[in-house]
Every structure is written in structure tokens, then in C-alpha cells.
Design a protein around this nucleic acid. Structure first.
Lengths: 195, 195
DNA sequence: ATACGATTTTAACTTAGGTTAAAATTTTAC
DNA sequence: GTAAAATTTTAACCTAAGTTAAAATCGTAT
């Protein structure tokens, strides 16, 4: 299966796009390679692209202005979209940096081309709505994880539900995503391993 | 100004609905009165109504099954919508209880009537999109408040940005919303008053 | 005005994460 | 294979929130 086939398959799963629906869009998808540390979108930039990850892992993060500490807000991995939702959906300047955590390869499509597709086809319009719903669902799940779960539970959830992320990035990115410091994650890992 | 005028005005602000646009909907809005403790929507119910609050304050909360402790997830106040976003947008069973914290009065419209309006008018379709965006923006703001802010900062933000809520509900609802226990909020308040 | 219930604060103690720096381990480059 | 760099763990101490129960305060109804 080629990478484009995988993309077509994922979009079929996501929004029930048939091969024909997908074919309308093929000329709009472009491939891009990232080296670890390259940016998908910079802080303060309006994000104009929706990415689909072939290989690699990305994060959105904020640099706290008092401490210069980086805090990871969202992680994105293989066969998923990479996009800072709020900036892309509202077409507003992005609060985050969005960066490759590993070498990576994506397909991307511009907001302009997406809007063309929305106009041309009801199925693509539906895709747009489902994108927004997906962004909302990811966000509310993360919000609820902070309200209802302990850092230890968030850690166990990440291992269970996103092993592809867990296995491919350093633990300091994980601890930042979980909302705790490095030493705290070490203590949690120790606590778990002693059970 | 009548209550319906206030609703019309709020919708104009929110989605640029003209008096004509609004008039299309007047027969769909119904008034309902709540006593403190009454439910707008129950846990496990698919929420089929969008409310607009004339007077009073509502909350969405979860009862933790191990401790029976209630945790407030969203608060809603005067001249705003009351709706458990996720359940309403996805038309899925609700994870929360949504309840009046004070006596209250709302106008509500059903999802069926809203869908009719979406079909009839581009402006109302736009309203639907803006609703979903609003839900997303409220949710990501709350998510970010947990990632970037201390409980003390969240408390000060609430006083500053939602004085109508702060001034009308008991502190134990506030502490729950902030993600801390009652005694912790008392300590924070003491700390602040000593400055 | 008073008594009851509801709400908030306080106290005493526990727990878990924050902070800083050093040590240990792992990875990478040559 | 070894040195250097990057990552993770550990240690020691600090801080803030959790927990539980009691005390204080506030509101309300009679």
C-alpha cells in the first residue's frame, strides 16, 4: 500500500470518503519531509495547513515566558492529523509552536484547497464538520483528563492508548504533556514498577 | 426590553442574526422556569435542547463513582447558553448532570427545530457552526487553564471574568470548578487577603 | 431574636508533586 | 570502543493541596 493509499484509507475511515471523493483531492495533497526539530507551524502564525502524518511524531507546545520552560499541549502521531486545532479552525494566530519531535513525513493540504472541496462536495463539507468535531473531542478528553485523573492515571492511559507516541519520544516530553516535572514522572514510574 | 428582545440581541451579537433571521425562530423558542436543583439534562440522556439563560446559574457536573464526590465541569450564567456541549453537538448520551444552581429561567430550542432553521437559512447554518466553535473555544480555554495556571490564578480569573457566577453560587461550587477541595480554597482566599 | 441548617474556615496531619543539583544510565558520534 | 552529549533517575528539601473533623460564621425560617 502506498502512502497515498494509506491517506485515502484513513479519510475513508474518518469521514466515509469514497475513492471518488478522495480522488477530487489528490492534486491538493503535497508531501513534506521534516527533520527532528523542524516546525510545522510557528507561534503567532495563522496555521493554513492540515497535515496527515505518514511517519514521525509532532507536538504543540508553549514556552512559558517567566521560566522559559516548554509545556506540551498536544501530541500527534502516525496516521493522524497534525494541526493546531484552534488556529486552523478559527484561522487565528497560533498560541503554540508545532514541531516535529522526530524525523517525519506528512501529506498536507491548504485551507484554501479544503474550502474549495467544501464548496464542490457535500461529502467534503461533512469532512470539515467532522474535523471540527474531532478537534473538540480531543480537547474535551484532554480537559477531562486533568479534571478527573491523577498524573499516574494519565501516564497509564498514554501507554495504553498511545503506545506509538510513548515508544518514540523521550520521557521529558511525556512528563511535560502529563503536566508534571521530570523527577515526578520518575517517581511515578518507580511507584508503578514496585507494584 | 423584554426577555425575547434580550435573546434576539444576544443572538445578533453572537452570530450576526438580523431581526428577520431571529423572527424565523421565535415560534421555536419556549420558556421554562427552574427551581434550584432542577435538572436541565440528566446524566446518560442525549441532550436535545439548547438553552439560553434569562436569569440564574447552571452547572454540569460528574459524580465520581468511588467517592460520590461531585465535580463541576462547566458553569453557565445569565445571557449565555446552557448546554452540555459534547452531548448536544454529537447527540450522544451525556456524561454529565446539568443542573440549576439557583432558581432560573431560560428560553430553549430543540435540536430538531434548530436543524430545520439550518436547512432554511444560511445565517442559521452559520449559527450552528459558531455554536460548535464556541463550545470548542470554551473547552480549550478550560483545558489551558489547567495546563498553564495554578488554582490561585484560576480563582482570580473567575472573579475577574465571571463575577456574575462568583457572586451567585456557594464557594464549594467554585472550589469544585477550580479542581480543588474546600479547605484549599479557604487557604487561597486567606493567602490573597493577607497581601 | 433565636435556633437550626448550611456554608466556610481552621487545625493538624498526610501525601504528592516542585525544585535543584548530582549521579547514573543510555545514546550518539567519531 | 570510548568520549561526549543527552536522558533519566535519585536525593534532599520545600510547598501546596488532600483529608478529616471540629469550630466559626452566615442565612433563614419561625
Amino acid at each position: 500500500m502506498t502512502e497515498l493509499d494509506i491517506l485515502a484509507f484513513a479519510l475513508k475511515q474518518f469521514a466515509d470518503l469514497t475513492p471518488n471523493d478522495f480522488n477530487m483531492s489528490t492534486s491538493f495533497w503535497h508531501k513534506k519531509e521534516y527533520k527532528k526539530g523542524d516546525f510545522f507551524n510557528q507561534h503567532k502564525n495563522v496555521c493554513r495547513y492540515l497535515g496527515f502524518i505518514n511517519t514521525g511524531t509532532f507536538r504543540s507546545f508553549v514556552i512559558e515566558n517567566n521560566t522559559a520552560e516548554e509545556k506540551n499541549v498536544f501530541l500527534y502521531s502516525k496516521n493522524q492529523f497534525v494541526v493546531p486545532f484552534k488556529s486552523f479552525i478559527n484561522q487565528t494566530p497560533c498560541d503554540y509552536h508545532t514541531q516535529a519531535m522526530t524525523d517525519a513525513s506528512i501529506y498536507y493540504i491548504s485551507i484554501d484547497d479544503l474550502l474549495l472541496l467544501y464548496k464542490q462536495s457535500h461529502k467534503w463539507e461533512r469532512f470539515g464538520r467532522l474535523m471540527a468535531q474531532m478537534a473538540f473531542n480531543v480537547t474535551i478528553e484532554r480537559m477531562e483528563s486533568f479534571i478527573f485523573k491523577t498524573p499516574e492515571e494519565r501516564y497509564l492511559d498514554l501507554i495504553k492508548n498511545h503506545p506509538d507516541i510513548f515508544n518514540n519520544i523521550p520521557l521529558y516530553h511525556i512528563s511535560s504533556y502529563l503536566g508534571i516535572q521530570g523527577p515526578s514522572l520518575s517517581r511515578i514510574r518507580k511507584r508503578i514498577s514496585e507494584k
